[in-house]
Design a protein around this nucleic acid. Structure first.
Lengths: 203, 203
DNA sequence: AGAGTATGATTAACAGTGTTAAGTAAGTGA
DNA sequence: TCACTTACTTAACACTGTTAATCATACTCT
């Protein structure tokens, strides 16, 4: 009676195939330049088949982003596990976050820079264990470590973490959308942002 | 022979009428939810007429944003003209920038958070006296004032200004796109961001 | 084995999008 | 009056995301 399992396996397989095709086009061309029809062409199925596996385009590309962001979570967890000076560790985490965004601009843009489609339960989006929120929780841990080690004197850890997030998101998104701006230098601004934020928090 | 002038005046008038109609729909519904046909309906002209006055949708809404951002420039120039402690003045400017973004989310989004349409001369975009860049120049002035007054010790004014921009853009854009995130409090994060940045620059 | 059903995928279509080529009508200048 | 410019419109192209209806086939049950 393993027939059900096999069918489920086949469904999973095609689902992944859709995700992979979508990802490839999406990474190359970005959200608005990848169409359901082009994805369907790529896997040689009809466009409507995709709707059997994903509610709509938004959900499909959201899943693609989720896959990518889980890689960020892995990277961050590796850094946070390492021993050493907590402030330096936090800094490394911030840098990795920024670099990740610049390496995956389309995914970063759709998860953090695009208008959330209304009707979607916004609360749920942030409460659930989405990789995006997991990444943020590393920030809280990082700040907490610094406070515990007496390297930072901060009244509100949550507030400090959100401030850090704002800062690193700012430089990441600006470098993504305004690549041609006369930056003093990408590396320089990145490090200046991180150093300024940490210094500002008394680190 | 004032006929040419009259015609030019009429053209200017219709052009402004298009801009106003576009602005109203755009402010209400955002970039991707306003169509050329809806704008045309509103002013009771055919959609193609708009293309006589504007190259394409991007240029039209870019002009709308330009109009809005000129209001920011006005506000900032008023603040910067006022006498007083330069660091406090800079802080006020940063706050005004953030508040402006939150008051005009769609305009802010299309000017600073959307992918620049390729083919557009990116260099020119930043060199020209666009209101966006004028607003940035106020940042440079603000930082320079602080340095001159001995209130900030900074090796590179340009770098400091770009760092500040990254920071305030970060909190602005995050509050726009992730309104439902469990923020410690909008006002709190805004002020924390500004204070942290200024403190980090030694202000 | 044969009938019925559930499943997966498809075709055709809807309602919309930005944009362009071709055509029309009115007003201007000689 | 005739030619020409200007402002504008109609019709169409090539797309978009998405849905309803349909088809085929593999599986289940009697």
């Amino acid at each position: 009676m393993g027939v059900k399992e096999r069918r489920a396996r086949q469904k999973r397989y095609l689902r992944q195939e859709i995700l992979d095709a979508a990802s490839e086009l999406f990474v190359r061309d970005g959200y608005e330049n990848v169409s359901m029809r082009r994805i369907a062409d790529k896997i040689e199925y009809s466009p409507t088949t995709i709707y059997i596996y994903f509610k709509d385009k938004a959900e499909l590309l959201e899943q693609v982003c989720k896959e990518t962001f889980s890689r960020l979570v892995q990277r961050l967890s590796k850094i946070m596990e390492q021993p050493g000076e907590p402030v330096e560790r936090l800094k490394r985490g911030l840098i990795v976050y920024i670099e990740f965004g610049l390496e995956n601009p389309h995914q970063y843009r759709t998860t953090f820079m695009m208008p959330i489609p209304e009707g979607l339960d916004e609360k749920k989006l942030h409460q659930e264990n989405s990789p995006g929120m997991q990444a943020f929780s590393f920030l809280i841990q990082g700040v907490t470590d610094c406070v515990k080690a007496g390297k930072m004197r901060i009244p509100n850890v949550e507030l400090a973490a959100q401030t850090l997030w704002a800062g690193i998101h700012g430089i990441t998104s600006l470098l993504i959308t305004h690549e041609a701006f006369p930056w003093v230098g990408r590396e320089k601004v990145i490090h200046s942002t991180v150093d300024t934020l940490i210094a500002g928090l008394g680190g």
